[in-house]
Design a protein around this nucleic acid. Sequence first.
RNA 1: GCGGAAGGCCGGAUGGCCGCUGCCGCCAGCACUGGCGGGAGAGGAAAGUCCGGACUCCACGAAGACACGGUGCCGGGUAAUCCCCGGCCGGGGCAACCCGAGGGAAAGCGCCACAGAGAUCAGACUACCUCCGGGUCCGCCCGGGGGAAAAGGUGAAACGGUGGGGUAAGAGCCCACCGCGGGCCGGGCAACCGGUCCGGCAUGGCAAGCCCCGCCGGGAGCAAUGCCGAAUAGGGGGUCCGCCGUCCCGCAAGGGGCAGGGCAGCUUCGGCCCGGACCCCGGGUAGGCAGCUUGAGCGCAUCAGCAAUGACGCGCCUAGAGGAAUGGUCAUCCAAGGGGGGCAACCCCCGGGACAGAAUCCGGCUUACAGGCCUUCCGCGCAU
RNA 2: GGCCCCGUAGCUCAGGGGAUAGAGCAACCGCCUCCUAAGCGGUAGGUCAUAGGUUCGAAUCCUAUCGGGGCCG
Length: 137
Amino acid sequence: MIPPGATGTGRMAGHPETPPAVSVCLEVMKTRPQFLATAKGARQAMPGLVVQSRDRGDDDPVVHVGFTCSKKVGNAVARNRAKRRLRAAAQAVMPHEARPGWDYVLIGRAGATAELPFDQLTENLIRALAKIHGVRK
RNA sequence: GCGGAAGGCCGGAUGGCCGCUGCCGCCAGCACUGGCGGGAGAGGAAAGUCCGGACUCCACGAAGACACGGUGCCGGGUAAUCCCCGGCCGGGGCAACCCGAGGGAAAGCGCCACAGAGAUCAGACUACCUCCGGGUCCGCCCGGGGGAAAAGGUGAAACGGUGGGGUAAGAGCCCACCGCGGGCCGGGCAACCGGUCCGGCAUGGCAAGCCCCGCCGGGAGCAAUGCCGAAUAGGGGGUCCGCCGUCCCGCAAGGGGCAGGGCAGCUUCGGCCCGGACCCCGGGUAGGCAGCUUGAGCGCAUCAGCAAUGACGCGCCUAGAGGAAUGGUCAUCCAAGGGGGGCAACCCCCGGGACAGAAUCCGGCUUACAGGCCUUCCGCGCAU
RNA sequence: GGCCCCGUAGCUCAGGGGAUAGAGCAACCGCCUCCUAAGCGGUAGGUCAUAGGUUCGAAUCCUAUCGGGGCCG
């Protein structure tokens, strides 16, 4: 999925094959308990998306990222398109902005996630992460 | 040129950068895997899950019957169908053409509200004709008997229709045509069509009411099914057992033997109940693998056929994910739409892309859909 | 992905070819009471999910569509 080659537990932190800027290793979260746990954490809404996140507090520096859309967004085509754009945005932003050991869930919003220009969408994501990290400090 | 009918096809294109999922080759590697290169990667409906199959499991002597469900003009096509093609009949349209669950109501049962005199073993309100009696303003009226079922009116439907004869008035009472039923002849594989003769009105509608007749159907579904298989808990089996106690050695410290605990029992062997540790076994969850993509496949040509389709030849390989890849972004072009300029061809600017995302695989049907292209045909108008 | 069920008044449901489509609760008006509740009387409220078809006639029968809900080892 979005992080290069990130499937399964074979990928451990510290390997240098991830994007060179920051040594943050991304993984996609898939299971319902992970989503529910992250939903209890900090939440930041922006015009183009909603971000939920939490510090897992364990020693594992892996960053989990989940993508989701409610049926409010539209039919299957609209939901898949929104999730793809969120993946593309996460791929561009998360290696630089994410914090090791945190989980993030990106939620698509009706209309905006699919229609907003891409640079605004990434800018939304950066600002949302900055706000969350600022509050948590 | 205008209006219309039918059928088929397409469903943005090209390129750059960054990514995702399989496959192939090379290199590295114990394994997991990693690197480089190459090539592939959503639809006509992928949808609804309405039909039909393939495939898998379950059940079952073969086969048939009953029940239940489906289907229903005839012939053909197909692996099969509630599908497709051709034809028939009925209805609609000037026509091209379109629509139709379209077997059986003289096997049986059931239903036909309201209105109406009468609704299926039909019926007689108004009104018609006639006879008898009475009345009379000589038009006719009243009462009773009989004839008759044409007219009015009701209804979705009134026991054939139109016309003529006939009659006191009438009636298939008689005649002609139409309709209906039966026989014969001709055409057609058949549905059915045409002709002719006879009968003489007998047979209201509803079977998407029960039903009868013909044909079809065993049930469940890829979350099917097969294989591998953690942790934890639990099941079966095996071995061993702390503390305490007791016995032996020793002056003592200590060492060693027996013994897990409990119950019944004089004791042994043995029995029952309750524990702990370790090992083994099978079931089995998460998870993984297979099923999983070469198939009633696609393209082209020829032949057979009115066609659906079939036969044969050559060529091609065309998604296989698994909470689920097929994307993000930029540029140019193409078309819908809008504005401006120009007689026009055309030019410039703005603008923005229908319905919709594979999930075991096929054949159909149905539904959604911006816009575009092609072919054939019909009617009207004009010109020749 | 597959299988199955249900759409009738604001809510819960009847009605299974001929009704003006009913019942209970809720709503509104009135009576009762010092006031409220209960009780009594009355009123209004429906594209019978949508579209075709069968029938003289459809909420009811048939077909398709739309919407909602449930189940699977």
